[in-house]
Amino acid sequence: MDLCMRRLLILAFLALNITQVNADTLTLKAGHPDTYVVKKGDTLWDISGYFLKDPWRWPTLWGHNPQIANPHLIYPGDRLTLVFIDGKPRLVVKQHLVKSVEGRIKPKNGAIPAVDLSLIHQYLNQNRVVDEQWLDGLPIVLSGESPSRHHIIDDIVYVNAKLPSGQKVLIYQPAREFTNKDSGEVLGREIIVSASGRVVDSGDISKVQLLSNLRETRVGFKVAPVDDDSLMPAYFVPQAAQTEGASVLATVGNIREVGKLDVVYLDKGSEDGVRPGNVFSIYRDGEEIIIGNDGVPVRVIDRTSYEKVLAYFSEDNVTKMPDIFHGKLMVFKVFDKTSMGLIMHSDRPVRVGDKLMIPEKLTLKGQ
């Protein structure tokens, strides 16, 4: 048998035994229920977790069902039933309705969200990553009517710009500068809302009254008008990310390790094709093992100074172990060169530098 024919047979064998898993292929969780009654506080992600190994695939579980044209029209009290349509698992719903005072039929409670928005609400409205040049062009808080160094709600602060009277503004505290760990490229400056305010007196030095405060406002903080970029939408439809080469850029609060329901920054943004709802798998680089002079494998933590030099200069002596799966995250806010994600599942703690991979697309039959 020639080499060409042998290759064709191998390809044919693989085609019979490997199934492409795309957005429409679902794997049910062992021991899944046949029915589920929606409760107050549920999310679409949580409910799908009772049925699916990958809960982020809930749009496929529900989206193609004509009885649920919009998954956000699922309410507490609704009964969900798992059925199979053309051999594919789907959820159908029997809605729980009550009559209003006017006699109209309406849902008993508010529709359940995709994820628990309370986990990310503050980040949707407070955290941004912006271009340094844009930030430098903003006016700043010079001082205030109060002699205090810290200003809070109802205080009047002075801003070094002629702002339109009545204009609503946000006051930002400049925070960390983010850079790409490999290239050193500046990815942007993190800014965090400290307060909202309204211009009450316009002039070369404008007066702004603070309407709310999330943290104390100090001199040097930046002032910007409220715009659409600062108020991000809270609607997310999860889908497999398509951006390669991403990694965890930073954690909120500079915490060393984070886990489920914690928020992290990514080092990729809209310029790299990242979109709200993108789901990434989180992996830690596999350990690099070297073989010592005695032929015994040496782990990183056990290396001598000589072995560290040997590993640095000689790749032939290094064997990299497989990368280790740590969890999954969903992107909920995207900037030009960075984005923010919520860790939805974690097997192990997540750290800065962990790799973000496109969710797996191949699986063997029967897995």
Results as ranks from 00 to 15, higher is better:
Asp2Met: 05
Arg7Met: 02
Leu11Thr: 06
Leu14Gly: 06
Asp24Thr: 14
Asp24Trp: 15
Leu28Ile: 11
His32Cys: 13
Val37His: 11
Val38Phe: 07
Leu44Glu: 00
Leu44Ala: 01
Ile47Cys: 03
Ser48Phe: 08
Pro59Ile: 05
Thr60Leu: 05
Leu61Asp: 09
His64Cys: 04
Ala69Trp: 12
Pro76Val: 06
Gly77Asn: 03
Val83Asn: 02
Leu91His: 05
Gln95Tyr: 02
Leu97Cys: 09
Ser100Cys: 12
Val101Arg: 00
Val101Gly: 04
Ile105Leu: 01
Lys106Gln: 04
Pro107Ser: 12
Asn109Ala: 09
His121Pro: 06
Gln122Leu: 12
Gln122Asn: 15
Tyr123Glu: 06
Asn127Met: 12
Asp136Leu: 14
Asp136Trp: 00
Leu138Tyr: 00
Val141His: 06
Ser143Phe: 03
Ser143His: 10
Ser146Cys: 01
Ile152Val: 07
Ile153Asn: 07
Asp155Trp: 12
Ile156Cys: 08
Ala161His: 04
Ser165Tyr: 07
Gly166Lys: 03
Gly166Glu: 06
Lys168Gln: 15
Lys168Met: 09
Pro174Trp: 06
Ala175Thr: 13
Glu177Cys: 04
Phe178Arg: 02
Asn180Ile: 02
Asn180Leu: 07
Asn180Lys: 06
Arg189Cys: 01
Ile192Cys: 01
Val193His: 13
Ser194Leu: 11
Val200Asn: 01
Val200Pro: 02
Asp204Tyr: 12
Lys207Met: 05
Gln209Met: 12
Ala224Cys: 07
Val226Leu: 15
Pro238Leu: 04
Ala241Gly: 01
Ala241Asp: 04
Gln242Cys: 12
Gln242Leu: 11
Ala246Ile: 01
Ala246Cys: 11
Ala246Gly: 10
Ser247Gly: 08
Ala250Asp: 07
Val258Phe: 14
Val258Gln: 15
Asp262Leu: 13
Tyr265His: 02
Asp267Ser: 08
Glu271Pro: 08
Asp272Ala: 14
Asp272Arg: 05
Asn278Met: 07
Ile282Ser: 00
Tyr283Cys: 05
Arg284Asn: 03
Glu287Phe: 13
Asp294Val: 04
Gly295Glu: 15
Pro297His: 09
Pro297Ile: 14
Val298Gln: 00
Val298Met: 10
Arg299Ala: 02
Arg303Lys: 12
Ser305Phe: 10
Tyr306Glu: 07
Lys308Ile: 13
Val309Asp: 12
Leu310Ile: 10
Tyr312Phe: 15
Thr319His: 09
Phe325Trp: 04
Met344His: 13
Met344Leu: 15
His345Cys: 03
His345Gly: 03
Gly353Lys: 05
Lys355Asp: 11
Lys355Val: 00
Leu356His: 06
Lys361Glu: 11
